[in-house]
Design a protein around this nucleic acid. Structure first.
Lengths: 196, 196
DNA sequence: ACGTTAACAGACAGGTCTGTCTAGTGTCAG
DNA sequence: CTGACACTAGACAGACCTGTCTGTTAACGT
């Protein structure tokens, strides 16, 4: 009884270990043996839970997507003003990029080491489609004259901020991107819809 | 006689093969055997020319940097107007991203599969520093009020365009980034310096 | 003619990686 | 008590990867 379990299940420990190691060092660099050692789990448990390494990679990326989604939606909900809600997406990224463990976009990193039709590419596409749809909705709600085009520009800023913060070891790129996003949004808003 | 050689040297063929395979499939995924087979070169020649695989990776990335540098500078020289010269950096990227073989930034891709103090990370930092300095100079010559800040924003757009064009298989991201860059430049230019 | 140099082909060692398999341990329901 | 279940430990096969080594061939300068 007490809590659900005195020790987390093998699956949970494997996912936690994969999340940490794959993100820090890359899905290709980190071998199965490293993951099971870090998780304190037998190899057979890994193959019983996830089938093969690709299955573990997929679960790792899906978990990353869900975490990111929850962080962003949580940030958005803290605001009422439509412009603030849109910019909250960048605030969420700023928070992530400020952590010492930040290593850029898990999806891009994973697909950079894999072939174009790999699990990583599939999950990356899904995650990008969600982000783009979210930004399009937020742009529309903020009164953008052309939500789709503005969202495309915001995606570029978001991607560029992720890359820059990682490669230059400097989260300031996210603040710069947020500032440009605010400028673009203001320029794109239909004046008649602006409330005093 | 005739041309310099009836056949390119082993070093040249190795670099060409490495450039093609490493860029298309990743420095980690592609093994030494694949490279020498594709180059039609003996393994001993590779180790004689480059010492080890890291040496080949370094030469591959340095070659990529030089090619990119030449492409960009060639584009810039085609223009006299300072704003056009700055935007030529994005035109050069648009040309690259339109090719079917485009796979994003070779430096980011290579460093995504390697540890933070690897050859890839070093060459990536060098290449990024060059790009940032170039954009700062071009921004200054175009009359930007704050060349350093504008360059930082342009780097974000450049990175974001590279990532977007790759992950979405759509070079339109570069055109969007170029449009935003033109807007930022116009907003940042000191009006007094504009010539009629 | 001769030595140097660059290049070739390919075997080999030593290591790592994925994935399978055997065998044993602990827990819990009925 | 018993059987199902989840898990552990670790050996193993087969593939692949880097780097070394041996031996051969061809061009070129002196």
């Amino acid at each position: 009884m007490s809590v659900t379990s005195p020790r987390r299940s093998a699956r949970e420990r494997l996912l936690a270990a994969a999340d940490e190691l794959f993100y820090a060092e890359g899905v290709h660099t980190v071998g199965i043996d490293r993951v099971i050692e870090h998780a304190g789990v037998a190899k057979a448990s890994l193959y019983s839970c996830f089938g093969n390494k690709d299955g573990l990679v997929r679960a790792y990326l899906q978990g990353r997507h869900e975490q990111r989604r929850n962080r962003i939606l949580g940030r958005i909900e803290q605001h009422d003003d439509p412009s603030d809600r849109l910019l909250a997406v960048f605030d969420s990224l700023a928070e992530s990029a400020a952590k010492p463990s930040y290593r850029g976009c898990a999806f891009y990193n994973a697909s950079a080491e894999s072939d174009p039709d790999s699990v990583a590419a599939q999950e990356s596409a899904a995650s990008r489609a969600w982000t783009r749809a979210l930004l399009t909705d937020l742009a529309r709600e903020a009164g953008a004259a052309d939500p789709a085009t503005l969202a495309a520009q915001l995606v570029i800023l978001y991607d560029g901020a992720m890359v820059g913060a990682r490669q230059d070891h400097d989260p300031a790129a996210v603040l710069n991107a947020r500032a440009v996003a605010a400028t673009l949004l203001a320029a794109n808003q239909t004046p008649s819809r602006v409330r005093p």
